[in-house]
Nucleic acid binder design. Structure first.
Length: 631
RNA sequence: GCCCCGGUAGCUAAGCUCGGUCAUAGCAGCGGCCUCGUAAGCCGCAGGCCGCGGGUUCAAAUCCCGCCCGGGGCUCCA
C-alpha cells in the first residue's frame, strides 16, 4: 500500500542560509545566484508526490499555521526538497502545488518565502532545540485530519532497543527485572532512574541551598541560566579540585594542553559532526562568521592531533585539558543547580591507542585513575554506581575484559546492551551519583571510540612505515568539577540526615582552623596563634567580631569548620589548645573538646591532607574584615 | 519549548483568597551596652519603583491583561 501525499520536513530554525548552485532541470525557475539568509523561521523541506493537488498543499499549510501559532513563529520558507520520496510529481505539477502553498500561506498572514525550484542548492541550517522543533508530516489528499505529527513515533521506531542487566563482580549477567536488589538500594534507584525515569517531588535540591548558604557558588541572574558566580570560598574549593585532578592526570601521563573555547561552525572537520546536534551549542558571531562554543576538549585536541606526527612508539599517547569552560546549551528546563549547567569545568583526557588490546589495557588504568580521583573528593565506591554500556557483539568478544572491570569495582553494576552500535563508541562506562531526590548523574566516564580518529584524520605510523588509524579513548576521570562539588554537598546532606555532622574533606575546607578568643583581651594572642598555624600552610582565621564566644562557636559549626580552637587564659597559661574537632563534636551540642599542643594540631592536619594540593585563603584572616556575599 | 510554583529590605519570608492606617517580621548591616569557657546576650537605628508595563477602581502589593526573570517538573542528555 502506498500513500499519496505531500511530505514535509518541518524545522523550527534559528537561521537558514542557501545558495542556488546550478540548474538541475531545464524548467528550473529563474533566480539570482547569491547567498540567501533568513532568521527565526520554520523551514519546510517540501516534497510533492504523484497525485498531489493544490488542495493537498492548502491542507498542509493549514496544519502548519496551527503549529506556527503554537510556537509563536510567523515566518516560513518553502524549500523544494525532492529527496523525501521516490514517487515524485512532475516538475510542473510540483511547482504548481508549491506556488499554491505560497500564496495560500501569504493569504493567511504568514510571512512566506520560497526557495527556487529545480536548482541544486547548498544550505546551512541551525535548528532550535525544543522537542517540537523537528517534525515530519505527510498530508493525505482525502484525509480530514490536518497534518499528522509523526516525529515521536518515528523516533521511537528508530530508537534501537536497549537491554538492561545487572552484572555481578563474578561476571554473572542477570536481566534487570529478575535481579534481587536487596542490599543495593542505590543501584535499584539508579536502574529505575535510567530505565523508567521516575518523577520527584517538587523541591529545591539540597545542594543548592548549601552552596549558597556556605557562600560557595550562586546563580548569576545577569548571565545565561546555568552559568554561575563563584564566591571566594567556592572558588578556592574549585581551584583546589582542578589542581588535584590535573596533577593526577599529569602523573598518569597526560600531556596538558590548552585549546580555544570556540570553533568555526563551517570548519570541514567539525561540520558534519556538529550538524548532527545543531541545537546544543552556544553560537557566537564574529564579523560574518559563526562560531560554536566547545562542549568538550575533543575538538581542540583532535585538531591538534590531526596535525601531529605520531609514531607507534609513542602510543598510547595521552593528551589532557582542563576545560574551563565547556558549554552545553541545555534546554532551559533541564538545568539544575550544580548538577546540570550550561557552562562547566571538565577535565578531558584522550588516549590514542594502536589497537584494541592496547585500548583495553589503557582503559583499565583510567578506570583506576577515576576511582582514585573521586576518592580524593571524599567519594568512595559506596557513594556511586557503575554503569557499563556496550554492543552485544563487543560483549561476546570481550566478555572477560568487561567482567574484569566490574570485579575491580567490586559491586554489581548496571548494564545497557544494544544489538547494534549507534554511537561512535563500542564500550562506555560511567560512575553515577544518586542524590537526595533519587536523581542519578554521571561523574567519571570513559569510552572506546572507533569513529572519530577517521573523522578527524588522526593517524599514526606503524612499524612498517604505514599510516594507521588509531582508536581513541575519551575519559573524564572526575566528570565536571561542578558536579563533583554537587555530589560532595549532596553527600554531606545525607550525612546530616543520618545525624552526623556534614563536612567537606579537610583539604578542601575553605577554613581548616578557626581561632576564637574568649574575649577581646585575647585578640592579640589569637592572632599570634593564627599566624603561627598559617605559616605551616594551613588555612586559618580568627574571629575578632564583637560577639559572644558561644555565638562564634555556633557560626563556626554552621560553616562546617573542621577545627575550632578557643583561646583564653587557660590556654595561654598551659600552652595546650582546646580544640573542637567537628568529626567528634560537630553534630550536637556539648561535644567533647580535645586538648592538644599547637604542634600536634599542625601535625594532624598535615597528615590528614598529605598528598593533596594546598592554596591560601584569599579572604582576610580577621572575620570582621570580610564582606558577606550571601544572606 | 511546554506545564507548575515563585518574584515584597542584602537574605529568608508574612500580607494577596475577601482592594481601603499593610508596607510587616526574623536574620544580616550600622550604633551602643555587655567582656562572656564550647551551637543564637540586650537595646536602638537605618534599610523597600511590593519584578516591569498597561488596565479596572474614588482607591491596587492585593483584581484583570501582557511581558521579563528565577526555580522545579516534563521532554532531552555526544
Amino acid at each position: 500500500m502506498r500513500f499519496i501525499q505531500v511530505k514535509i520536513l518541518q524545522l523550527h530554525s534559528n537561521f537558514i542560509e542557501y545558495r542556488p548552485v546550478e540548474k538541475e532541470i531545464a524548467s528550473a525557475e529563474e533566480c539570482e545566484e547569491r547567498l540567501y539568509r533568513l532568521e527565526e523561521l520554520v523551514v519546510l523541506f517540501t516534497c510533492v508526490e504523484k497525485g498531489d493537488t493544490p488542495e493537498t498543499g492548502r491542507k498542509a499549510i493549514e496544519g502548519i499555521k496551527e503549529f506556527l501559532d503554537k510556537i509563536k513563529a510567523r515566518r516560513i520558507l518553502l524549500y523544494p526538497y525532492a529527496h523525501l520520496s521516490n514517487s515524485l510529481a512532475s516538475p510542473s505539477d510540483a511547482l504548481n502545488v508549491l506556488k499554491e502553498m505560497e500564496s495560500y500561506a501569504n493569504s493567511l498572514g504568514i510571512e512566506t518565502y520560497r526557495a527556487p525550484f529545480g536548482w541544486c542548492k547548498e544550505f546551512t541550517i541551525s535548528i532550535k532545540g525544543h522537542p517540537l522543533a523537528e517534525q515530519f508530516r505527510s498530508i493525505l489528499p482525502g484525509e480530514e485530519k490536518k497534518g499528522e505529527l509523526v516525529s515521536k513515533a518515528l523516533k521511537a521506531e528508530e530508537k534501537i532497543k536497549s537491554y538492561w542487566y545487572i552484572i555481578e563482580p563474578d561476571g554473572k549477567l542477570i536481566p534487570v527485572e529478575d535481579y534481587d536488589f536487596s542490599g543495593h538500594e542505590k543501584l535499584r534507584k539508579f536502574a529505575n532512574y535510567e530505565i523508567s525515569k521516575m518523577r520527584a517531588a517538587q523541591q529545591t535540591p539540597p545542594h543548592v541551598n548549601l552552596m549558597r548558604r556556605l557562600e560557595l557558588v550562586d546563580y548569576e541572574p545577569a548571565s545565561d541560566p546555568g552559568n554561575f558566580r563563584w564566591y571566594p570560598k567556592g572558588r578556592l574549593i574549585k581551584s583546589l579540585m582542578e589542581q588535584f585532578v590535573t596533577e593526577k592526570i599529569i602523573a598518569y601521563g597526560g600531556m596538558e594542553v590548552e585549546t580555544p573555547i570556540m570553533y568555526d561552525l563551517e570548519h570541514p572537520a567539525l561540520a558534519n559532526y556538529l550538524h548532527r546536534f545543531p541545537a546544543r551549542q552556544y553560537i557566537l558571531k564574529s564579523d560574518d562568521k559563526e562560531f560554536f562554543l566547545r562542549f568538550s576538549a575533543c575538538f581542540g585536541q583532535f585538531l591538534m592531533l590531526h596535525d601531529a606526527q605520531i609514531s607507534y612508539r609513542q602510543l598510547p599517547l595521552k593528551i589532557y585539558e582542563l576545560t574551563r569552560y565547556s558549554f552545553r546549551r541545555e534546554k532551559s528546563g533541564e538545568l539544575s543547580g550544580l548538577r546540570r549547567l550550561r557552562g562547566f569545568t571538565m577535565p578531558d583526557v584522550h588516549a590514542i591507542c594502536a589497537d584494541m588490546d592496547q585500548a583495553k589495557e589503557e582503559f583499565l588504568k583510567r578506570f583506576q585513575l577515576s576511582i582514585e580521583t573521586l576518592e580524593g573528593f571524599g567519594l568512595s565506591r559506596e557513594d556511586y554506581e557503575l554503569a557499563v554500556r556496550f554492543t552485544r557483539d563487543f560483549y561476546q568478544k570481550n566478555r572477560d575484559f568487561i567482567v574484569s572491570l566490574v570485579s575491580r569495582f567490586g559491586k554489581p553494576a548496571l548494564v545497557e546492551m544494544w544489538d547494534e552500535r549507534f554511537f561512535y563508541f563500542v564500550l562506555k562506562w560511567e560512575f553515577n551519583f544518586i542524590d537526595n531526590l533519587d536523581k542519578a548523574s554521571a561523574l567519571s566516564t570513559d569510552q572506546i571510540d572507533i569513529e572519530n580518529a577517521k573523522r578527524y584524520g588522526i593517524s599514526y605510523i606503524d612499524e612498517k612505515g604505514e599510516s594507521k588509524t588509531p582508536l581513541i579513548l575519551h575519559c573524564s576521570p572526575s566528570g565536571a568539577i561542578e558536579r563533583d562539588l554537587y555530589a560532595m554537598l549532596e553527600k554531606a546532606y545525607m550525612e546530616q540526615k543520618k545525624g552526623r555532622a556534614p563536612m567537606l574533606p579537610l583539604w578542601l575546607s575553605p577554613i581548616q582552623v578557626r581561632i576564637i578568643p574568649v574575649t577581646d583581651q585575647f585578640f592579640a594572642e589569637a592572632e599570634k596563634i593564627a599566624k603561627r598555624i598559617s605559616s605551616h600552610n594551613i588555612r586559618v582565621d580568627w574571629d575578632d567580631r564583637s560577639l559572644t564566644m558561644q555565638r562564634k562557636i555556633r557560626e563556626a559549626e554552621m560553616e562546617w569548620i573542621p577545627y575550632t580552637v578557643v583561646i583564653g587564659q587557660r590556654e595561654i597559661e598551659s600552652e595546650v589548645l582546646s580544640v573542637r574537632d567537628r568529626r567528634v563534636s560537630g553534630a550536637k551540642r556539648g561535644g567533647e573538646i580535645r586538648k592538644m599542643r599547637l604542634e600536634e594540631l599542625v601535625a594532624e592536619i598535615k597528615e590528614r591532607t598529605k598528598g593533596k594540593p594546598f592554596k591560601h585563603l584569599s579572604l582576610p584572616m580577621r572575620l570582621s574584615r570580610r564582606p558577606r556575599f550571601y544572606g
